[in-house]
């Protein structure tokens, strides 16, 4: 799988340029910044003093063995973890410079700014069109939106996720009837009309076959620059070929965070190299 990395990356365009751009935007403001963020599920501590600075407009991948806290971190950013009820946190999470853990934060706005994509594609049991418009309608409830405006929104979102040509003749068809890969693209498309700043992706390709994975990775590269993307993955090759920066986590702690190339080629911490070379995980 690791061998296919560079090839695929060439397919999806500009591997070298991507890395350079990644370096270029590194001075841009931070999309996500956490300081000494700790999280407990009941008495179990899942995150330890996480200090992360996720830069705007690039793709950051998070890798690490199962249970290392990657998904927990992701789900803390848009505050969906706390729905569980027995979650306790200390420290801060700033999104686009604003503390999202503050008392006066409107969760509905947080979720609008931060789109989330799940492991299993979860399109709503509605038509393709209604799926794309769902978030937009929620956030423009009570306003009159003309049919043609809605049509434009749908076309733009579906074009952005490279799905338009495949579904343009069947926008009224059920979204759950699409192939898995198209479903996952649709799940990304429905986030776009409300113009989120950040897209969190929790192993977005793990339910897809290799071809679907490639297609979704290609899409993630397309979205790069317009959105800050934080992607959790178990797939080392994917992290390597489809991200600018990479975070390696182990047992709830951030072990290493740097340019993806550096993390993979010259890791600073021996635990990182052990994991990357497959000695555990």
């Amino acid at each position: 799988m690791a061998d296919s990395g560079p090839d695929t990356r060439a397919d999806v365009g500009a591997p070298a340029a991507a890395t350079e751009e990644g370096a270029a935007v590194s001075v841009a403001p931070l999309a996500i910044e956490t300081r000494e963020f700790n999280l407990w599920y009941g008495t179990f501590q899942a995150l330890f003093d996480v200090d992360l600075k996720i830069k705007s407009g690039i793709i950051t991948s998070m890798i690490g063995p199962s249970g290392c806290g990657k998904s927990t971190f992701l789900r803390s950013c848009n505050r969906i973890n706390e729905r569980l009820g027995y979650v306790r946190t200390t420290g801060t999470i700033d999104i686009m410079g604003h503390d999202v853990l503050a008392d006066d934060v409107e969760l509905l706005q947080v979720r609008k700014q931060i789109g989330m994509v799940f492991q299993r594609p979860n399109p709503l049991p509605l038509s393709i069109r209604d799926n794309v418009l769902f978030g937009h309608r929620i956030h423009h409830a009570g306003e009159k939106v003309s049919k043609s405006d809605e049509g434009e929104i749908v076309e733009k979102a579906l074009r952005d996720v490279l799905l338009w040509d495949e579904v343009k003749d069947d926008l009224g068809g059920p979204a759950t009837g699409l192939p898995l890969e198209a479903q996952q693209k649709l799940c990304i498309a429905r986030l776009l009309p409300v113009k989120p700043a950040i897209l969190l992706m929790d192993e977005p390709c793990s339910a897809l076959d290799p071809k679907g994975t490639e297609a979704v990775e290609e899409l993630i590269w397309e979205l790069r620059g317009d959105y800050t993307i934080l992607i959790v993955t178990h797939n080392m090759a994917q992290a390597r070929r489809a991200s600018d920066e990479c975070v390696f986590m182990l047992l709830g702690k951030v072990i290493e965070h740097g340019l993806t190339e550096d993390v993979f080629l010259s890791p600073e911490d021996p635990q990182t190299s052990d994991y990357i070379e497959g000695r555990y995980g």
Partner: peptide, 15 residues
Amino acid sequence: AFREACWNMGATRWQ
């Protein structure tokens, strides 16, 4: 999963 999808787009429970 349907509910999760909605909530994460900022829909309220009633929506």
